[in-house]
Design a binder for these strands. Structure first.
Length: 110
DNA sequence: TACTTGACCGTAA
DNA sequence: ATTACGGCCAAGT
């Protein structure tokens, strides 16, 4: 699977900008990178996520994708993110919800 | 062209 | 707390 180069870069850029100790959902990244759907974010990470802080991206309910859950949770704990029974409290660790909420079509930042 | 495959999401029972 | 379902969308077959 080869996704468009442009989309690739946008998604990678957003993921790269997630601060240590914070997390974002696939949906968040999709919005911020104007990716057409959260699925495409996973698709990009699957291909080109190796050199990114991919472990800061989780599902909307605070859980990880199954096949990588072990390592992802470990990495998050190393950053000081509390993990409760395989889940992260998004209300606490979600990265800058404010950015997303007021972004209807903000003057080009992203 | 038509169908399948995902690191997904929101709603509803 | 689970499961089920429909919607999502590009890439593979």
């Amino acid at each position: 699977m080869r996704v468009d180069e442009q989309l690739h870069e946008m998604v990678r850029e957003v993921v790269r900008s997630i601060p240590r100790g914070r997390v974002a959902t696939y949906g968040d990244v999709a919005d911020l990178s104007r990716a057409p759907s959260p699925r495409l974010v996973g698709q990009v990470l699957n291909q080109d996520g190796h050199d990114l802080p991919w472990h800061r991206v989780l599902r909307a309910n605070g859980t990880c994708a199954p096949h990588i859950a072990d390592e992802q949770l470990q990495l998050l704990r190393e950053e000081g993110v509390a993990v409760d029974d395989g889940k992260v409290d998004l209300r606490t660790y979600r990265w800058e919800n404010a950015v997303k909420e007021k972004a209807d079509e903000p003057p080009g930042l992203w």
